[in-house]
């Protein structure tokens, strides 16, 4: 894969993890020095984790085993919240379904759109800065006003979309007010926010060594072949990052649905992020909210671990390839 080949590869410890015991035996002074450096350099995160994240996370786990309205002291009810969510609360399963729908709908399409835009925006044409800005614009602005604005385009009566559909003789659906169309609208709105993803791809594209393309061109590879065999694999670590964080992000999605539909109509856009918020801050059920959060956490964790397992088949790291 790599055009640059190292002279001494063996014995080097690369990104891939090996079992501690084995490594320890053949650890030279160099490796031990690196290990010290490893801990030293990740120490800010470790300290931060202990100080700022660990406590609240453990606390939220503890809360999930209680009934707690925030005012009085929490009651320990063991797995009560979990059994209620899984076996009694009909809404919970609908919420899970909605969340998966949203995630499946927006992550892959978002990656494809972002990748395509990044390829386009990597072209050296006049005014490219201007176009980059346009596609990044929705990611720059935040807040309720802008989400309302996007929702306005999908207004069934005066919105732009139905206006255009009417012109070609199609009667547009009720979009955000139709239980079948509300979620697709939220997914389409999520595509407005691909600017960030696009930018990370763009940065990745800038990092693809030109020698690879030059070498491939000399070998007679066409545009498609170069794209397929150089661009895609070299960017696979980026894709992996965006896939993992995209799934985490979409599973927690909250603001657009909160602003535009408040979970409706008929709970068709109540995602788990929304459900957690409602339970925690409107229904005074902090314990139940926490248990939903931990069920969500468990789901994401499993998904992420599966992705890491699968990633070995399709993600190519420069460093690892050379160790093989």
């Amino acid at each position: 894969m790599s055009s640059t080949v190292s002279l001494e590869q063996t014995g080097r410890i690369a990104g891939k993890a090996q079992t501690a015991g084995k490594r320890r035996e053949r650890m030279g002074p160099l490796a031990r020095r690196r290990e010290r450096w490893f801990y030293l350099m990740i120490s800010p995160w470790i300290v931060g984790f202990i100080l700022f994240s660990g406590g609240p996370i453990i606390a939220s786990a503890a809360i999930s085993f209680t009934r707690w309205s925030l005012v009085q002291s929490p009651d320990w009810i063991a797995l009560g919240n979990y059994t209620y969510a899984l076996f009694e609360d009909d809404l919970f399963w609908k919420v899970i379904k909605n969340t998966i729908y949203y995630s499946l709908g927006s992550v892959p399409s978002g990656l494809v759109v972002a990748f395509a835009l990044a390829l386009l925006l990597n072209e050296k044409v006049r005014g490219i800065n201007f176009f980059r800005t346009i596609f990044f614009l929705p990611s720059v602005v935040s807040g309720v006003g802008v989400i309302l604005l996007f929702g306005w385009i999908f207004n069934p009566r005066f919105g732009l979309i139905n206006g255009m559909l009417a012109r070609v003789g199609i009667k547009g659906p009720g979009w955000l007010y139709d239980p079948h169309w509300a979620m697709p609208v939220l997914i389409i709105l999520s595509l407005y926010g691909v600017g960030g993803t696009m930018l990370i791809y763009l940065a990745g594209l800038q990092g693809v060594p030109q020698e690879l393309y030059e070498a491939a061109e000399m070998d007679g590879a066409g545009t498609w072949a170069r794209f397929r065999h150089i661009t895609v694999p070299v960017l696979s670590p980026v894709t992996f990052l965006l896939l993992v964080t995209g799934i985490i992000g979409t599973f927690q999605v909250f603001t657009p649905a909160y602003v535009l539909t408040n979970g409706g109509p008929e709970f068709s856009t109540t995602t788990i992020g929304l459900s957690i918020y409602f339970n925690a801050f409107q229904y005074n059920k902090m314990g139940y909210a926490a248990s939903q959060a931990w069920l969500l956490f468990a789901t994401i964790l499993v998904l992420t671990l599966v992705q890491f397992r699968l990633s070995k088949r399709w993600v190519h790291y420069e460093q690892e390839d050379r160790v093989k």
Binding site: V47, I50, L51, G54, G55, P56, I58, A59, A62, I63, W68, V71, Q72, S73, P74
Partner: peptide
């Protein structure tokens, strides 16, 4: 101050939740 308080912080954060606040 962050560094100084490091150890007791975690302890408190956990017990806080179980503690009766009112």
């Amino acid at each position: 101050t962050v560094v100084v308080k490091e150890t007791r912080v975690v302890e408190k954060a956990v017990t806080q939740v179980v503690e009766k606040v009112v």
